[in-house]
Nucleic acid binder design. Structure first.
Length: 562
RNA sequence: GUCCCUGUAGUUCAACGGAUAGAACAACAGCCUUCUAAGCUGUGGAUCUAGGUUCGAUUCCUAGCGGGGAUACCA
């Protein structure tokens, strides 16, 4: 917050520009620090000496309480009276909008996320893209961007050939009506089992897909049925998770544009036939070829994705297009982006926000084998566990299903989002269903504690939020710590957006909650001292507001009672 | 083989190249006549190996070892 001012101050004193200052790792070391190692080389003096000399020369401005030399650092301690006032006023004024900024004004961000394959149920593997994408959606929106959330459904491709073949061979329209997703899954699994014994099935599936692409009436009809039945199921789960998309334009949507894309590609790049397929050779870039048409002349995933990219550029005029897709598709996107670059189509706008996979200690997960952890089951398990815990703890909100739902979902979402997205997650039920420690329920609980204090304050003192308070009364270490946290929120949101990493917000909220709970256990908010109470109540209100806003950015709800 | 990601307490995760490597879970020991104990306090315990760059390396570079992924018609 005062970073620039401190920098200028030092620059002015020593007459050197572009200095780097740091934020010390601990509160005892102040709020900002200037390391003197670099100067040591230039001035040929020891860093410690320089620190000592310099500290005396600096004229202390009034927002600085103290300048202290610690080792080879000059440490600045900010006067928190002024800063508390600023932060608390801002939060109380902006409320649910605190953290929102307008740095993305007039800019569009397209986020491609979730994007499941039709005809297979959503499983735990879909969770990452779905929650990371949703969170980035909210983060960018809060930064003032116009965001377009696209669920790029996998609703075209050879897999439909497999499904159509399987349905024609073993399917039942009665079963399909009864439980569409289950029946389709069974067929998919059966296909893979059978095709292991009989490799001709794969050819048969490709033929069925070819017929589908050639608009075979029967196949097209089946495709339509499968698609709409699946989509309905998906939407049920998105509704539970409270996630919305602006578009469900999946792969099939681009069918009408493939020809034009082909033309454009052929015009601007060297395409060639290789082993019967139409490709763009990428050997120069040490990559396998980019497939336009497969050897049986059906469209490839590459071609459909290229069309989607071109369409999105044209339709949304985006500042950036984010693909929230797992790391196993990294090569695919490298190829795609290389092609876009060769076609001079703003490659820099395209970002693959990749993430590590869930790994499983045993053979728990393989769609083809039929061993699946269904997303719906995970969510239900978590919600039921929340209910059980609420009953065991004799929770105030006992039997409140809405609350249990919010807690249960929060736990699952947070368990995913709090990980650095680059890393693989070893799937572990205990961890996904944790309600203690660094979890969403911990944050929700902290929020409830805040509300509880606010309620009591209202009852006893009839305090309203927009009170004038004496900021000097917020002087305890634990209070200052919280104020610093609150002041950091905006930067955290920006940092999280810049890195496409919601876990930065998640970790921040844990820190804030921890600092609050330490405060809560050491200092009574409501006391006989009315002025002190007023000041502390304002602080509590701010904490609750920031937890709420932060959780909202993660796609997690707060609850009012637990 | 090649390319990408990754390696930190028993386990799961943090740490713009900076100060004594932070948490959580698990273990153990404490704290509820006081604002909700889904909490708080305390104890033990970690940077894969070998070099290099640097005043300073968990972070950057090189090599090795381990884990994951990708590697021409799945998406």
């Amino acid at each position: 917050m005062f970073e620039k001012k401190i920098k200028d101050l030092i620059s002015k004193t020593i007459g050197i520009k572009n200095l780097e200052i740091e934020i010390p790792p601990k509160q005892e070391l102040g709020d900002y620090a200037f390391p003197c190692f670099e100067l040591s080389k230039k001035l040929n003096k020891s860093a410690q000496e320089i620190a000592n000399d310099l500290a005396v020369k600096i004229k202390k401005p009034n927002f600085v309480k103290e300048i202290r030399v610690l080792g080879s650092y000059i440490n600045f301690f900010i006067d928190y009276n002024s800063i508390s006032k600023k932060i608390i006023n801002e939060i109380l004024k902006e409320k649910n909008n605190f953290g929102s900024q307008n740095i993305g004004k007039n800019r569009v961000i397209v986020i491609d996320f979730s994007s499941p394959n039709i005809a297979k149920p959503l499983n735990i593997g879909h969770l990452r893209s779905t929650v990371i994408g949703n969170s980035l959606y909210k983060i960018y929106k809060s930064l003032g961007y116009k965001v377009v959330g696209v669920n790029h459904l996998g609703d075209w491709g050879t897999q439909f050939g497999k499904l159509i073949y399987a349905y024609k061979t073993w399917g039942s329209s009665i079963e399909l009506k009864k439980d569409p997703i289950k029946h389709l899954l069974d067929l998919y699994v059966k296909f893979h089992k059978e095709s292991k014994q009989n490799s001709k099935l794969d050819d048969a599936a490709r033929d069925e897909f070819q017929k589908l692409e050639k608009r075979d009436k029967k196949n097209l009809e089946l495709w339509k049925t499968f698609r709409s039945l699946s989509l309905e199921e998906f939407k049920k789960i998105y509704k539970i998770l409270n996630i919305k998309f602006d578009s469900y334009d999946g792969e099939a949507f681009y069918n009408s544009q493939l020809e034009e894309t082909l033309k454009l590609t052929k015009k601007s790049l060297n395409t060639k036939i290789s082993e019967g397929a139409l490709i763009v050779d990428l050997e120069k870039f040490k990559m396998p070829p980019f497939f336009l048409l497969k050897s049986n002349e059906t469209s490839s995933y590459h071609l459909r994705d290229l069309s989607a990219a071109i369409y999105r550029l044209k339709t949304y005029k985006p500042y950036k297009i984010l693909y929230v897709v797992g790391c196993e598709q990294e090569l695919h996107f490298k190829q795609l982006f290389t092609i876009l670059d060769l076609m001079k189509l703003n490659k820099d706008k395209f970002i693959h926000v990749n993430f590590g996979m869930f790994s499983f200690s045993d053979n728990t997960m393989s769609t083809r084998e039929g061993n699946i952890i269904f997303l719906e089951d995970v969510l239900n398990k978590s919600i039921n566990l929340a209910k059980k815990i609420m009953a065991d703890k004799k929770s105030i909100a006992k039997n409140d299903n809405e609350t249990a739902k919010k807690i249960g979902l929060g736990a699952v979402i947070f368990a995913d989002l709090s990980n650095d997205r680059n890393k693989n997650i070893i799937f572990n039920w205990n961890r996904v269903l944790a309600f203690d420690g660094d979890t969403a329920p911990y944050l929700q609980y902290t929020y409830v504690r805040c509300l509880s204090i606010l309620e009591k304050a209202k009852k006893e003192y009839k305090l309203t939020p927009d009170i004038k308070i004496d900021y000097k009364l917020l002087k305890e270490d634990s209070e200052i710590k919280i104020i610093k946290d609150l002041g950091n929120f905006k930067n955290i949101v920006i940092k999280s957006a810049e890195n496409y990493k919601p876990n930065i917000v998640a970790n921040y909220l844990i820190d804030l909650a921890k600092d609050f709970n330490e405060f809560y256990n050491n200092i009574r908010v409501i006391s006989n001292d009315i002025n002190s109470t007023k000041a502390k109540v304002a602080l509590v209100l701010c904490v609750s507001q920031v937890i709420k806003n932060g959780l909202n950015l993660l796609g997690i709800s707060t609850v009012n009672k637990m």
